[in-house]
Design a protein around this nucleic acid. Structure first.
Lengths: 146, 146
DNA sequence: CACTGTATGTCAGACTCCTGACATGAGTCC
DNA sequence: GGACTCATGTCAGGAGTCTGACATACAGTG
């Protein structure tokens, strides 16, 4: 049954299951956001911007786990869509603080509801205690990797 | 402190922390595998193939969460590197079972050790009970999303 | 047997995201 | 004040992955 080789057993590897769960979540989010005409990357940026208004492109990039070059083009499309606005020039330094437009806020509200529903589905088999425990464990893992 | 808007609170969102932990793990794996000249995708394929020898390209694709088109080109490069072999033509149907070569097995052994070290680091702050609990919670989440 | 459905391997094009590079602005140390 | 370091925004090019499409092979159904 169990493999004799000195490798990683997929079924008992936290790392692999982390990948499995994360991939399943992303796929479910894509499926839920598609009818709204929004991608996961767009949603992630808008959500982060809603919680931390005025974030710069580089800061948004770090928060959504993409490079600042990718966030650069992402913000351009979000500005074209009228979801986000940025000042023409920086007041101090080079940082251009981004903020949600009213339209962006409305679109985000719809997307956020859809994503919340996905998350509820994901947590369906867990108790409230499990949920708290999951937060603790995931935080510990992320912190341990710096 | 806590945002008034009816959105998702990032710090208490299991979904967001799942993404955080997963991204941190992938970055750590990339960093650990780079000195060995191996990418995370290559490693994942080899590891899966070691546990389930004879898997077809389509099956490998599903197990590593890429499309079978991507796995197709991936297998081509792994064959060029001499890590993997596939028969010229299928015995039955169209499936071409892939297997590790001795070289592929040796390269995987090194990579597997490096990745195991990363996973140990990730689990550094957790007890053995925590580890078992993490497996249960992650499995539940993945299953709930189908 | 023919027909339908499903799964595979493969090719082509498009898209996303990344790596590399450059210029600019702010802070630090001498 | 000048040199160094760091962070940011931006542009160009490339590597990896995806979507779309096609041909083929098997299983099930009438």
């Amino acid at each position: 049954m169990s493999p004799e080789r000195d490798g990683v057993d997929l079924d008992t590897s936290v790392g692999y299951l982390l990948k499995v769960a994360s991939s399943a979540l992303r796929a479910a989010m894509e499926h839920a956001l598609r009818p709204l005409g929004m991608t996961v990357t767009h949603y992630s940026t808008l959500e982060l911007l809603a919680q931390r208004p005025g974030l710069s492109g580089a800061e948004l990039a770090r928060g959504t786990f993409v490079t600042r070059q990718s966030m650069h083009v992402l913000l351009q499309s979000l500005e074209e869509l009228g979801h986000v606005t940025r000042p023409q020039e920086a007041e101090v330094g080079r940082t251009l603080p981004a903020t949600l437009t009213p339209l962006g806020r409305r679109r985000l509200a719809l997307a956020s509801a859809a994503v919340r529903e996905v998350e509820q589905t994901m947590l369906g088999g867990l108790t409230e205690g499990d949920r708290v425990e999951a937060l603790r464990l995931l935080r510990s893992m992320a912190d341990a990797l710096r």
